[in-house]
Amino acid sequence: MSKEEVIKVRMAEYGVAKAPDQLITIGLGSCVGITLYDKNKKVGGMVHIMLPENKKGLKPPKYADTGIPLLIEELEKLGARRSRLKAKIAGGAKMFSISSSNNSSLNVGERNVIKVKEVLQEENISLLGEDTGKDYGRTMKFFTDSGRVRITSHKAEDIDI
């Protein structure tokens, strides 16, 4: 009997888990879900960021530039080794196609994805898989026993990254 727990990661929050537990984040729109996994230790974490940069000292997991380092730190506390961490990302969609005036918030999905990749590179973490962009919402489920990440949506077939 497995008794794995499913830990829900809400928007602008993060979670860490050890095998066989799972991490799930539901309803990624322009937000990006990032998973980091240490295969040897079978320890993983997930963060659900909304924006690229934390310029005003707000909630760290809301932003790519503060959320990813925070997640790395929390994973190290659980015994993960930074040099072994591998990333997978999903989300960054363009949910509405507003063409009018105002704004930078429109391509925020795209900007999120770019920033997430930059931060991962700075942290020397390789990106193993991604399902990003397009125009629909996604749910991301991370199995810490294998590192598998399942993406589901209302618009496309389920995929594993």
Binding site: G27, G29, C31, K56, A93, S105, Y136, G137, H154
Partner: peptide, 19 residues
């Protein structure tokens, strides 16, 4: 689409300056 994806995306302009 899924409610959460629509809601979260719509909150972006506000979430820049507030939690």
């Amino acid at each position: 689409d899924m409610a959460g994806a629509i809601l979260s995306t719509s909150m972006i302009p506000l979430s820049k300056t507030s939690d």
